[in-house]
Design a protein around this nucleic acid. Structure first.
Length: 291
DNA sequence: GAACCGTGGTA
DNA sequence: TTACCAAGGTT
C-alpha cells in the first residue's frame, strides 16, 4: 500500500498552516475532543471557541457533567444552535460514566452508540483523540474530494457511498499518518478549498485538482437551497427556549406566549420542545429547563 | 431519502 | 435583502 497522491503535499501544508485550536493541542483529552466535535456540528469554529472554553472549564470530565441536571447543559449551550446537542452531550456523559468507567470509549462502534454521535463524529474522535485509522468525511473533505478527484465544484447534497469509498481509498496505511491526513485535508477544505471563493493559488494540490484543471466549471446541478428560517417552528422553538435559558426560575406560560403571536404554531413548538426533553412542564403550570 | 433541527456571519 | 454556508444526526 502507498500513501495517496495528495498526502505528502497536504501534510506539509498542514504543518505550516494549521490553526492552533485548543482541542488539537497535545494535552487535549478525548472528552474535550468529543465536546468540540459535537459543538462543531453545523457550527463555525469562531463561535465554538468561547463555548468550548467555558464548557471545559466547568465540566472538565464526563463525570462532572453527568452529575448535573440536563437543563444545566442546555443553559450553558446558550445560543450555539441545535440545543438538542446539549442534551446529547449530557446523555453522552452519563453513558460514559455508567458504561465506560468515566472514560470516553476509543472504539468506533462504542462511539457510534453514543447519542448524537454519527459516522463522522465517531470517526473524528477515534482519529483525533485516539490516533486511529478511519476515513473522516465531513463537509470540508467532501468538497475537497469533489473538486480534486471528481472534478466538480460541489459534492452531492447528501453523502453517497461513492464518496465514502473514495475517502476510504485515500486513507494512508499507517494509523498515525492517517490521523494526520484526516485533520489536514479537513483543514485544507476549511481554509483554502472553501465553498464560496477557493484560494486555489494557495492550494498545495492545485496541480492535481481535477476541477481546476478542467477550468473550474461552475456547479450545474439542482439548487443547493438552504432551509428558510423566518416563520418556521425552529424560530419559535428558539425564542421559547431563550426565555427559559435566561430565567433562573421556572416561568409562567404567559412569559412564553408573548414570544409568538400565532397560537397554533406556538403550542406545537412548545409541545415539541417538551417531547424532545428540552423543556420541563411543571405541575403548577410553569415551565423550566429539564431537571 | 427528504425533512427537520438554531443561530449568526457574509456577499 | 435574500440566500448560502458553517467539523451532522435523527426520524
Amino acid at each position: 500500500m502507498f500513501d495517496n497522491p495528495y498526502s505528502t503535499a497536504v501534510l506539509a501544508w498542514y504543518e505550516a498552516n494549521a490553526r492552533d485550536l485548543p482541542w488539537r493541542r497535545p494535552g487535549a483529552s478525548p472528552w474535550s475532543v468529543l465536546v468540540s466535535e459535537i459543538m462543531l456540528q453545523q457550527t463555525p469554529v469562531v463561535r465554538v471557541l468561547p463555548a468550548w472554553e467555558a464548557w471545559m472549564a466547568r465540566w472538565p470530565t464526563p463525570a462532572d457533567l453527568a452529575a448535573e441536571p440536563s437543563g444545566e447543559a442546555v443553559r450553558m449551550w446558550n445560543r450555539l444552535g441545535y440545543p438538542r446537542r446539549a442534551l446529547n452531550l449530557h446523555a453522552c456523559a452519563r453513558t460514559i460514566v455508567e458504561r465506560h468507567g468515566g472514560e470516553v470509549p476509543d472504539s468506533h462502534a462504542d462511539l457510534l452508540a453514543l447519542p448524537g454521535v454519527g459516522s463522522y463524529t465517531a470517526a473524528a474522535v477515534a482519529s483525533f483523540a485516539f490516533g486511529q485509522r478511519h476515513a473522516v468525511l465531513d463537509t470540508n473533505v467532501r468538497r475537497v474530494l469533489a473538486r480534486a478527484r471528481t472534478g466538480v465544484e460541489y459534492p452531492p447534497k447528501t453523502q453517497t457511498r461513492a464518496e465514502v469509498a473514495l475517502a476510504e481509498s485515500l486513507v494512508p496505511p499507517e494509523p498515525a499518518v492517517a490521523a494526520r491526513w484526516a485533520v489536514a485535508v479537513m483543514e485544507l477544505g476549511a481554509l483554502v478549498c472553501t465553498a464560496r471563493s477557493p484560494a486555489c493559488a494557495d492550494c498545495p494540490i492545485a496541480g492535481q485538482c481535477a476541477w481546476r484543471l478542467a477550468g473550474k466549471p461552475p456547479y450545474d446541478g439542482p439548487p443547493r437551497r438552504g432551509q428558510t428560517y423566518a416563520g418556521t417552528d425552529r424560530q419559535v422553538r428558539g425564542r421559547l427556549l431563550a426565555v427559559l435559558r435566561e430565567s433562573a426560575a421556572p416561568v409562567p406560560k404567559a412569559a412564553l406566549d408573548v414570544v409568538w403571536d400565532e397560537p397554533i404554531q406556538r403550542e406545537r413548538a412548545l409541545d415539541a420542545l417538551v417531547a424532545d426533553g428540552l423543556v420541563d412542564p411543571l405541575e403548577d403550570g410553569t415551565y423550566a429547563l429539564p431537571g
